[in-house]
Design a protein around this nucleic acid. Sequence first.
DNA 1: GCCGTTTTCGGCCCGACTGTTTTCAGTCG
Length: 577
Amino acid sequence: MNRNEVAAALSEIGTLLELLGENPFKTRAYGNAARLIKSMDQDLPTLVEKGELDSLKGIGKALAEKITLLVRDGRLPYLDELRARVPPGLLDWLRIPGLGPKKVRAIHLALGISTLGELEYACQENRLRDLDGFGQASQDKILPGIDRLRRNAGRFLQPVVQQEADRLLELVRGVPGVIRAEVAGSVRRRSETSKDIDIVVASPDPEPVMEQFAASDQVEEITGRGPTKCSVVLKSGPSADLRVVDELSFPFTVMYFTGSKDHNIAMRSRARAAGLKLNEYGLVPENGGDSLPCADEAAIYSALDLPYIEPELREDLGELEAGSQGELPALVSDSDICGILHCHSTWSDGSASIADMASACRERGYTYLGISDHSQAASYAGGLSPAQVLEQHEEIDRLNADLNGTFTILKGIEVDILADGKLDYPDEIMARFDLVVASVHSRFNLSEQDQTDRILKALDNPFVDILGHPTGRLLLAREPYALDLRTVVRAAAERNVAVEVNAHPSRLDLDWRELAVGLRHGLLTSINPDAHSPAGIDHVRHGVGIARKGWCTPEQALNAWPLPRLQDWLKERRTGR
DNA sequence: GCCGTTTTCGGCCCGACTGTTTTCAGTCG
Ligand SMILES: Nc1nc2c(ncn2[C@H]2C[C@H](O)[C@@H](COP(=O)(O)OP(=O)(O)OP(=O)(O)O)O2)c(=O)[nH]1
Ligand SMILES: [Mg+2]
Ligand SMILES: [Mg+2]
Ligand SMILES: [Zn+2]
């Protein structure tokens, strides 16, 4: 088993143990171990071979043994046993809002049912109502929950949640009495997808804020409402949580509601170790007393001996350790982006001419554009024949001459990596490009070994500057193809080939978790909108968010470099061929 | 199940909301 499969197995064990009523701290140990295995730098087989698994904090003797079996044999009798004791359908039930492990187990044991369909029928037949600890209300909540489960994936892309968040923010900011309002949660942390929109408001008078929030025309249903908190489901699919507190608590609540959960736990543990208690209202001495006053989040971090930690980094993936060592990176930001690489034009499947794409870039303050249309194998996308490549280069020469140095268009290409790992043009053509993005657009179903070899071969090709959308994933729609991504990223770093962060909100590929690992091994990236129209250029900000989550500095992103530096880099790669 | 310069046992983040509860468990954030 590879690391992702091992992580999935551990996480499954945790869930199954929960359903069996195990000690919550024990089940969390499995969840933590899964996260750790997924995110660690080290090579899993090597750790197993050397017997060093339990040197990882959070993995002891028992987990080390189980992980070793999973890696070596690809299976684990303990897991098989748990699976035999818990019907698989119960895992689906857990995704219904309001049903947790205790209730799921109680229903299953009392009624002897275990599938979603059976649960639905049991509700329709009023079988749940009379069970101990249940009633009409709890039964009534289940059917709509099942419906919603079937309607959508439960997670949503950045453009959807960001737009909803902006509208809700505007709405609450307009309510009389509101002093401050901010978006929090995974939207603020710039996660690739979000379950919901989390909003924090400071006001001395919560009632009207919650009232107007709940009455918004974006809202489909109110799912919870108390004195400080209101939860709704939006018509567009995601839910939204509003938390209203007084002005003094606001920074603490923003920090709490921004999360992540694991970051919060780490911060609260750190506070405990310092004899303090941290919650969404303040930071108070353990044995009572007033909260330490903190005017903003930075002051809270500072009170715990930490520098400000950017929201994107708050995933409990080493940010507290790095912060306390003074080793947090200065993250790349929108204003660092100097130019745009990887865009399409009407020469292939884009909707705008090269000239229009270039002016769109200029208007946005960028100083260069790397046009990279599709290559000939991508016939469905109007891929360019060698003759068309030459024609396109003549057009770019003419445009550049007109631009007279005020802006530069680079002759790029998004060349297909063919099934055998070769590139889609002969070397004579490849040698003519200023910039080469190489991508997989076909044969997604190769075995992991073959797909990995195919891409490694492309990385060995001296004409390749950037590897495009390395896993081919489409968020919420298509899984990545089978690939040893760690090996590919390491190889790219060694060969000084950049790996793109494709900024299209459905891709965001390379994933930020793997970007972080790669950057620690010297990888370069490029934040590329893969735009097919002028509006598509604006997607670059989604990529910047993901790059930030991957701990990326401007030094590590090609298109955060001024043109001369980028050209030097490209030139050096070309003289090394 | 993991962990440890106050501990190898007794902690493990902390609080809001709901429903069924007659004092709180379960779920969720
Ligand atoms: N302290 C603490 N905070 C939590 C816990 N669960 C959630 N939070 C905080 C941190 C989360 O970022 C924030 C919002 O919760 P959400 O369930 O909306 O998660 P988040 O927005 O991080 O991700 P998602 O909505 O799933 O995309 O609430 C918890 O168990 N303990
Ligand atoms: Mg959220
Ligand atoms: Mg939420
Ligand atoms: Zn592509």
